[in-house]
Amino acid sequence: HTKMAMYQDRIFAFSPTGELIQLPKGSTAIDFAYAVHTDVGDTTVGAKVNGRVVPLRTPIENGDQVQILRSKAQEPQVEWLNFAFTGKARSAIRRFVRQKEREETVALGRKFYDEIVKRIPAELGKEALPGALKRLKLPDQDALMEAIARKLVDDATVMDALMPGSAEKAGVKRREGVQREAISMKGLTPGVAFQLASCCTPVPGDRIIGVRRPDEPVEVHTIDCRKLAENQDADWVDLAWGDGSDGGTAKLSVVVKNEPGALGVMSGILGAHSANIVNLALSHRDTGFHTYDVNIEVDDVQHLMKILAALRAADAVSQAERTPAA
């Protein structure tokens, strides 16, 4: 009875050559492919079950004959995780996706690195990069490029690691504290503390309002921020940007084509418009397109609109929008 119960949770299917493949109940065609071999799973484009072409998400039944259709050009897709059932299939897909994401992040970081080097006021020697890795306590170049892309280090830190003192000579400031000094508010008593809300990330030029709570800085929101509905009992303050206010962080959602160089096009446009990337994260990936959440430092709304217009004009970019207020 114990053996019977054990086999009730298993499926026995066959390859076209008669090879028996044992799988847990609930497995799909993609699980069958990875059970045959990891290379088979990685290059799967489709499947035939009992001679009929079926989607990869199709559950496998006892006694099915499964033929896996392959292409050398195929790679594992992140959406396969929605229907992969076995641990072997899921771990193989995750491993590939993580490696692919890291390669893309390193490539993007290298493009940012090249832009940073151009701002250093003297040509770098051969020992500059190895020396920078030691100063930053990073194991290799890829780790540095990844740190740059993920904004774990800012431009000034990288410049000074490559050539000490070069950031100050080039007039490049560190991120900390720069934004607050450049922003002032009309409607607040001088010296009253304020902070820009992270939910809607207002930038100079947005219509804004302040929310005042006891013993807390005044929180500045865009006028259309959905979070304002949760603050009906708070003290609202009518605000406007002070003269000469400059600088803020804007959140974007950018959809690029899944093709070589697309990320480089996006970063090139941002660099050309002097938009410093504060954070970059891949939020969605499918066969044709990748969606990135990008936080960038901009001067004001007009600067932001120019950046969005430039992104939308690029062939590699399918869509570029400011992330709506939460």
Rank of each mutant, 00 (worst) to 15 (best):
D114A: 15
D114E: 14
E115N: 14
I116P: 00
I116Q: 08
I116L: 07
I116E: 05
V117Y: 01
V117K: 06
V117R: 04
K118C: 01
R119V: 04
I120L: 07
I120G: 01
P121N: 00
P121R: 06
A122N: 00
E123H: 07
E123Q: 11
E123A: 14
E123C: 00
E123R: 09
G125W: 11
K126N: 10
K126L: 13
K126T: 12
A128V: 06
L129V: 12
L129K: 00
P130I: 06
P130V: 09
A132R: 06
A132W: 07
L133F: 10
K134F: 00
K134L: 12
R135P: 09
L138R: 08
L138F: 06
P139A: 12
D140C: 01
D140Y: 03
D140K: 02
D140P: 04
Q141T: 13
D142C: 00
D142Q: 10
D142H: 01
L144A: 05
L144C: 08
M145L: 13
M145Y: 15
E146D: 15
E146L: 00
A147R: 02
I148A: 02
A149K: 04
A149Y: 11
L152C: 12
L152R: 15
L152F: 13
L152S: 15
V153L: 11
V153I: 13
D155Q: 15
A156R: 08
V158D: 13
A161Y: 06
A161E: 10
L162W: 00
L162R: 00
L162C: 08
M163H: 13
M163V: 14
G165L: 04
S166L: 10
S166F: 10
S166P: 05
K169M: 02
K169L: 00
K169G: 07
G171L: 08
G171P: 04
G171M: 00
V172L: 02
V172D: 02
K173I: 02
R174S: 09
R174G: 13
R174H: 11
R174P: 09
R175E: 05
E176Y: 02
G177A: 08
G177S: 05
V178I: 11
Q179F: 14
R180T: 14
E181H: 12
I183P: 04
I183A: 10
M185Y: 14
M185G: 08
G187L: 08
G187K: 08
L188Q: 05
T189C: 05
P190A: 12
V192N: 02
A193W: 14
F194E: 08
F194Y: 10
Q195C: 14
L196D: 05
L196P: 03
A197L: 04
A197N: 03
S198R: 15
S198N: 14
S198F: 08
C199L: 09
C200G: 03
C200Y: 06
V203W: 03
P204I: 03
